[in-house]
Each structure stands twice: as C-alpha cells, then as structure tokens.
C-alpha cells in the first residue's frame, strides 16, 4: 500500500522531503539547478566586477604619481601616490556617514515608531507612503539642495562653533568660507538615508510579537514603556543592519564639493 502511494504520479514524495535531496522528479531537478545557478551567478558577477576593477586600476595604484605624465597634472596633481589621494576620500566618506547616522538614525527610528505604534492606521499609511516617496528623489537633487541651501544656511552656525567652541579640536578654525563642510555633507546624507532606515525599522517594529507587547501592557505599561520593554529589545538586533546598509548605499555616491 505504501508503494502505491509513493509511486502514484503527481503526489509529494515524503522520502525526498525528509532527506532534503531533490530526488528523482525532473521538475525538482530543473528548478534546483535554476535556483542554484541564479544564486551562483550573483557571486560570479560580483567577483568579476572586483577582478576587473583591480586589474584595470593596478597600473595607477603601482605608479609613482609625481613622475607619471598622466597623473602629475590635473585633479591628481600634487599627490605622491595612490594612497595619499584616496585615503582622505575614504576618511571623508566614513566621517560624513558617521555624522549622517548620528543625525539621521534617531529621526528615522522616531518616524518608524510613530508609524508603527502611535499613528492611526490611515495616517500611518499616508506617512509611510511619503517616506517611500523621499527615497525616490534622485540623489543629484539632494546634492544640489546641499550646495545651494544647506551650505549657506549652516554658515552662521559654523561661524558660531568656530568662535565659541574652537578650542575643541573638532571645531577648530579656520572656518570654511564656502560652507562645504563635513557637517553640511553629513546633514544631506542624513536626509538621504532617512527613507531606507525608516522603512526597514518600521518593518522590524511591526514584527514585534503581539505576545510580548501584550505582556508589557498587561503589567500596566504605558505605550512608551511597552515600546521599551517589548519593541526595542526585539528590534535591537535588526535595526543596526538597516542603518548601516542605508548609509552604505548613500555614501558611495560622488562626493566632491570640496
């Protein structure tokens, strides 16, 4: 009788399901091949990109930049080698991303919490949509906004910082005359990472098990106490990832208004 059930076409094969092998049925094998192939393809593409970049960049990395005729003038003039040119750029990327995270992440988490746990359902839907819309703004628009609005806007504040807090190395003069500072860059980046950090945080907050939320509420927790007892501990492992990926996606953009 058991033979009959197993050999009957079109039924699941329990033996295969338990061993995890894509046994005899051709469709299973084809699909396994397709999905494994797709997964492998992404690794191959990434490796190919990395390989291409390294091979094509190797001459410039190895060259002496003061003597090489291609590198000793233009934007790369005055740099001894590849590292003296690139390290400040890497540092700028990290530093502006850090500023962006410090400013952007708390705001994004606040918005996400409001959407997931405070706002009435309809308002939450509208807000979530607006935040997603922010993600659709091309980054060049944010860049121009930074150049023409944020830079001049921040100038007086920066002047104040240099005058009164200049004794802290971080705010030491001389002040940038154009306002092209790490602070301006960080603020623009903060706005740019807002949508992705908000929407991923919102998803995580919404996944908090109802059971844990009710446990806190039934003990007489206010909504904020419930969030501290149930939502944050649950989300803690999750939210650092979106914050980082949000800033990684944004800070790699061309960034040269120095």
């Amino acid at each position: 009788m058991s033979n009959e059930t197993i050999s009957r076409p079109g039924t699941g094969r329990p033996a295969d399901a338990t061993t995890g092998k894509a046994g005899g049925r051709p469709a299973d094998r084809v699909f396994l091949g397709l999905s494994t192939g797709s997964a492998a393809l992404i690794m191959v593409i990434l490796a190919a990109v990395a390989l291409f970049l390294i091979i094509r960049a190797a001459p410039a990395i190895a060259a002496n930049w003061t003597t090489d005729p291609n590198l000793s003038h233009g934007t790369t003039a005055g740099h001894a080698d590849f590292w003296s040119y690139v390290l400040p750029l890497i540092w700028g990327t990290l530093w502006s991303s850090a500023i962006a995270l410090v400013i952007g992440a708390p705001i994004a988490i606040g918005i996400a919490l409001f959407i997931s746990h405070y706002a009435p359902r309809r308002l939450a839907g509208i807000l979530g949509y607006l935040v997603d819309l922010l993600a659709a703004v091309p980054s060049v628009v944010f860049g121009l906004w930074g150049i023409f609005v944020i830079r001049p806007f921040l100038l007086p504040a920066e002047q104040w910082l240099v005058q009164h807090l200049g004794w802290i190395p971080l705010f030491e003069g001389p002040q940038s005359g154009t306002g092209s500072t790490m602070l301006a860059g960080g603020i623009v980046l903060a706005v740019m990472i807002l949508p992705i950090v908000t929407s991923i945080s919102r998803e995580i907050f919404l996944q908090t098990p109802r059971l844990h939320e009710e446990a806190a509420l039934a003990l007489g927790a206010t909504r904020w106490e419930m969030i501290r007892y149930a939502v944050f501990p649950y989300a803690r492992s999750g939210w650092s990832a979106p914050s980082c990926s949000g800033s990684a996606g944004r800070s790699g953009r061309p960034w040269r208004w120095r």
Partner: peptide, 18 residues
C-alpha cells in the same frame, strides 16, 4: 494603565520578556 496594574493577566502562551 492603572486598571491593568490592579487587574493582572496571564496569557494563553507563556510570554516572558525574552
């Protein structure tokens, strides 16, 4: 909130804070 501090509740599935 104050009502729930007077009237405690135990749920269907155990839910200690993990």
């Amino acid at each position: 909130v104050l009502v729930r501090r007077q009237v405690g509740m135990v749920f269907q599935r155990p839910n200690p804070f993990p």
